[in-house]
Amino acid sequence: MYQFSKAFKNNQLLNAKYTDMMKKEPKNDWYGYGIQFAGAKGSGIYGHSGGHYGTGAEWRIFEKQNYTVILLTNKDLDQGFFDARFFIEKTISGTTPKLNNYFFTKEVVKTCLDQGLQQAKKVIKNSSFKLSEINLNAKGYEMIKRGFYKKAIDLLTLEVLYFPKSYDAYDSLGEAYMNDGQKKKAIENYQKSLDLNPENTNAVEKLKKLRSV
């Protein structure tokens, strides 16, 4: 991956014109011509990542600082991969609101798991940082996979409280309640998810299953 990223950067895979085209950051998106852009707008951080359960990989070029970073892991992405990614980004290119929100969300998650939902709400109330929905959701799903359904419910309750227009948040909370055997609340949350997004086929299938029991 390092050799690939070096070859890309040095115009050995494409000529300079097309390499520059791929490296051009879109105005209103984080994904260009097969390239992901990280950091703040104009930060010059680009590359690509990929992962699934039990694996994660990434190459990133920090063009302004002249660094290339390769990350590989054989664990789920939220088991250290994201921490390493954002720590490296913060160390090389400095902090951004996105990074602040990521580490703040980690603090909220830890508080919720260790001290409960109400204490986590207090941490949020007393902070100027924002929650990262994707990281909150990922931790909630980790709790579901590990069988800690009550903890998952607490985390995903935070998600629906602070992201009330997110159909995915309600869908996830519905799954946590379903796994915990709380059928009525599972139905309520899947239905709310479906109300927000009528094309959520997962909610349709789960509601059909829950209502048939």
Rank of each mutant, 00 (worst) to 15 (best):
I187N: 00
L196F: 08
L136S: 01
S49P: 01
R211Q: 14
G51H: 04
L194Q: 00
K165I: 07
L113F: 08
K150L: 11
V109D: 00
T201Y: 10
Y102R: 02
K23H: 04
N189G: 06
S127F: 03
K17M: 11
E205T: 08
K90D: 12
T105W: 03
F103Y: 11
C112M: 12
K90M: 08
F163T: 02
Q79G: 09
L173E: 00
K125F: 13
K150G: 12
G94P: 06
N126Q: 13
N28S: 11
K185G: 09
L173Y: 06
L99C: 02
L14T: 11
T111N: 03
T95V: 09
N10H: 13
L207I: 06
N10P: 02
R60M: 07
Y31M: 04
D29F: 02
D76L: 10
Y149R: 01
S127E: 02
E175V: 10
L210R: 04
A169S: 09
K206Y: 09
Q12H: 13
Q115D: 15
L207V: 05
I134D: 11
S132M: 09
G80L: 06
D168G: 05
Y167F: 15
R85D: 12
G39A: 01
D20P: 05
L99D: 02
A120M: 10
T105F: 03
Y149M: 12
K165D: 15
G181D: 04
M1T: 13
A138D: 11
L136T: 07
L136V: 03
Q12S: 10
P164K: 02
F8K: 06
K125N: 12
